[in-house]
């Protein structure tokens, strides 16, 4: 059985593709590993590809939500891509809608969306910075 899910670093982003049927401990390890990597690489975004996952139960759903929440605190955007239709239908029926998690159809679209989200954020920061500068000047 696989005992670790590899996390790849690409520029400001971290990429991971879950391709095995995860047992619970593996999911918990991944959660911790990913959090450490975000801090270590000061990642701005995380892309999680689940196109090979045949099921997502409440445990894995909870892991995804947890990753998204922790990443938000660490100022990294998370996007989950490639969920299979059967998995999506089942999750909805189960009662899990993974609110607040960004999604995309495939890795390509997901990456574009992630870059967009990070760029929007930087613009916002920039605008705020300028606002502060001008107000600081006005205060002089």
């Amino acid at each position: 059985m696989v005992d670790k899910i590899p996390i790849l670093k690409m520029g400001k982003y971290l990429l991971l593709s879950i391709q095995v049927d995860m047992h619970d401990q593996l999911a918990l390890d991944l959660q911790e590993d990913l959090t450490n990597q975000i801090v270590k690489h000061r990642a701005k975004g995380v892309l999680i590809d689940i196109s090979s996952l045949e099921i997502v139960d409440s445990f894995i759903g909870r892991m995804l939500s947890h990753i998204a929440n922790v990443s938000r605190i660490l100022d990294a955007k998370v996007i989950v891509v490639g969920m299979q239709p059967a998995v999506a239908i089942t999750l909805v029926e189960l009662g899990l809608s993974l609110d607040g998690i960004a999604t995309a159809l495939n890795v390509e679209k997901g990456m574009a969306r992630l870059e967009q989200m990070v760029a929007d954020d930087e613009l916002l920061e920039l605008a705020r910075g300028e606002e502060r500068d001008t107000s600081a000047k006005a205060g002089d």
């Binding site: 989950v80 490639g82 969920m83 999506a88 999750l91 029926e93 809608s97 999604t103 679209k109």
Partner: peptide, 12 residues
């Protein structure tokens, strides 16, 4: 509604 939610989960 479920269809809409499922599509959203898939990214559409």
């Amino acid at each position: 509604l479920k269809t809409v939610t499922a599509a959203k989960l898939m990214g559409a």
